[in-house]
Design a binder for these strands. Structure first.
Length: 108
DNA sequence: AACTTGACGGTCA
DNA sequence: ATGACCGCCAAGT
């Protein structure tokens, strides 16, 4: 499967552009792609990230609340948290406290 | 081929 | 402020 359906490739490209120590939301990526409502697809694409290079910083993508909703997909529950904290982010109760500060949008 | 689920988000009640 | 429903598109069953 070439996976050139479009969405996956776009999501992959955007996610890969997320700089170190920064995070974004599924909705932001979806909106950037032009499909605001397809935020779920962004998450789906991440799930399929197994087909993508390991360079895909899926741990830097959280929901619009800054909540680590996809932590359970990282093979553990604290893996994602540890990764983000390691990048200078403050995680409290699975939520990024300084999410607003560290937020990064693909438009940049 | 059809129905259900899924890393979300926004609006309505 | 909290809860429920709908929309979006693709994949799994």
């Amino acid at each position: 499967m070439a996976t050139n359906t479009g969405f996956f490739q776009k999501v992959y490209k955007v996610a890969h552009q997320i700089p170190y120590g920064r995070v974004t939301s599924y909705g932001a990526i979806a909106e950037y792609l032009g499909s605001k409502g397809s935020a779920r697809m962004v998450g789906w694409a991440m799930n399929s990230s197994k087909n993508f290079p390991e360079n895909l910083p899926a741990h830097r993508v959280v929901n619009r609340n800054g909540l680590l909703t996809g932590k359970r997909h990282f093979g553990g529950t604290e893996v994602m948290k540890q990764l983000l904290e390691s990048e200078g982010l403050i995680i409290e109760d699975d939520r990024i406290v300084n999410f607003k500060e560290k937020f990064w949008e693909p438009k940049q």
